[in-house]
Design a binder for these strands. Structure first.
Lengths: 225, 225
DNA sequence: TTAATAGTGTCTATCAGACACTATACT
DNA sequence: AGTATAGTGTCTGATAGACACTATTAA
């Protein structure tokens, strides 16, 4: 109700998650000030709406062509205020994005396996919290939405989609039951029309129109790593 | 990474939800500038951490004695920036809280039924979005956590707890099956030791230690009002 | 040929929802 | 007595998870 809050700086930070070589991974950039430290892509907030900033930050950091077919972007929560080196109080609005590894070409950073980032401790402290929240949010989203299909390139097979689930949840799933559950949800995936023509091997699918899963596909109990 | 964001004001806004006379309700205050308009309690962000601000805002607006036994507080998301009347760009960090109606004594506001607020349109536009998000978050939390017990006063009966669920979800639930599901979750509620002594009537319970529900208690399909 | 994976069929334990019935309390 | 609510027992359909089996591909 009063603008007396004054000296607060606001930025948007993003965890761009993908699956690379079967491992849950994230785009991170090298910091300048503490050399060797890594941080998540960030942009300062001006007049643009937060969600618009999230989109442009995603596209800028991951080098994605505008309005690519399938991508997932969602605000997580806001952190801070933290006092930076120069004594500026800063709050960070965190976002999480899901993009297939094939269409990522990071501008200033690189794609790191999340487990490696955690083990080496190279990621800035505040970003570790954001990354943890991002991973947990995505793991949860996988249970009751179709966002997993944003991490495969079309056309894809059911086992490919299963390996995405396995990488994100870090579990192994029963192939037969997984296939049944995916196909039981009406428009989760749709069979490729060319499937059965020339090609042999596993059946090919495309993303369906469904966004929510009924019923939900719950991760195995006691699944966390 | 740069404090050039400048002119941004940050505040915290809260939706304090409760069940009053069987209806999902929220604490709102009368605005000064557009007379008659209502708004959610707000505080400007200074040096304190956002979550600490949420706690003090909850206690300040709802008049709750410090560290009351059961209360739920969670950050929702951040909105904006919106340009206020004076041309100040403001972003609002939204919180949602759950408190039993018996321990609310609003300082500057009143407890309104959410449906009434929506119908009359008296709530400020931005706050309507926050309120909607808060209600949806709580409805979802009810499915897989025990937070519903924060909306009853101890000791309580199973039917009282059921009516809390019914008010928040705006559905009617099957009494027998509801009781079975609640009692099937180990430490959701614990029987009152005095139950069966003097008193007759429905059995009395207290809040249990469990925070998560296994298995989840899903709302009836197609339940929204 | 062998090993690994894709895919189908089927069985069982569990849970959600519905119904029937008894017990208790208030009028 | 009669009505409403608390609480128990039980049935049915749907689902999760496990196992057995066949088909296909790649070495």
């Amino acid at each position: 109700m009063n603008s007396k809050s004054g000296e607060i700086a606001v930025n948007v930070a993003i965890a761009v998650l993908t699956v690379k070589q079967g491992r849950l991974s994230v785009v991170a950039e090298r910091s300048v000030s503490p050399p060797g430290e890594l941080h998540l892509p960030t942009v300062c907030v001006g007049a643009d709406h937060l969600d618009d900033l999230g989109v442009s930050l995603l596209q800028g950091s991951a080098g994605i062509k505008h309005s690519h077919d399938a991508l997932f972007l969602e605000q997580l929560k806001t952190y801070g205020p933290n006092t930076s080196g120069a004594g500026v109080r800063t709050i960070s609005v965190g976002y999480v994005a899901l993009v297939a590894e094939a269409i990522i070409s990071p501008k200033n950073g690189r794609v790191f396996a999340v487990d490696d980032l955690r083990e080496t401790g190279a990621l800035a402290d505040g970003d570790v919290v954001l990354l943890d929240d991002a991973v947990e949010r995505v793991r949860s989203k996988f249970e009751y939405t179709t966002v997993a299909t944003t991490l495969v390139t079309e056309p894809f097979t059911i086992p490919e989609l299963r390996r995405v689930y396995e990488s994100v949840w870090s579990v192994t799933l029963h192939p037969a039951n997984f296939r049944r559950k995916v196909l039981a949800t009406p428009a989760f995936v749709v069979a490729d029309v060319n499937s059965g023509n020339q090609r042999r091997g596993p059946e090919l699918f495309h993303r369906g129109e469904a966004a929510l899963l009924h019923p939900a596909m719950l991760r195995p109990t006691g699944s966390d790593d």
